[in-house]
């Protein structure tokens, strides 16, 4: 499923809303999550999962083509942990 298909499903269930509205609703949800993470905040959606930011230490990496050593700076990366309910559903529970 891609973003436009998700928007379509929700639009079908809510005939009183325009496609435009549904687009804005769905986009707001995803945008809000990115914004929270960019601020270093967590987003916890019980049953679905939690988005958080993890710190990665600086390290010496290697250019895989040339084998040359390169400094990789410390950085923050987004991380998702699946919620219990969804994890159970994936396994047919």
């Amino acid at each position: 499923m891609i973003r436009s298909e998700l928007i379509q499903k929700i639009a079908d269930e809510n005939p009183h809303l325009t496609q435009r509205h549904v687009e804005r609703i769905v986009n707001t949800v995803f945008e809000e999550i990115i914004e929270a993470l960019a601020k270093g905040d967590r987003v916890e959606l019980r049953g679905f999962g939690a988005f958080s930011v993890k710190a990665r230490d600086a390290r010496v990496g290697r250019n895989p083509r040339t084998g040359e050593a390169v400094e990789v700076e410390d950085k923050k990366v987004p991380f998702f942990k699946t919620g219990k309910l969804l994890r159970d559903r994936l396994n047919g529970k």
Binding site: R24, T28, V29, I33, G40, D41, V43, E44, L45, R46
Partner: peptide
């Protein structure tokens, strides 16, 4: 940096502000 945790409520609030539904 003060670390906050957002929930469904914060996402609904954002949709409420952005789209103007109840």
């Amino acid at each position: 940096m003060s670390e906050k945790t957002l929930t469904r409520m914060d996402l609904s609030e954002a949709v409420f502000r952005e789209v103007g539904l109840s």
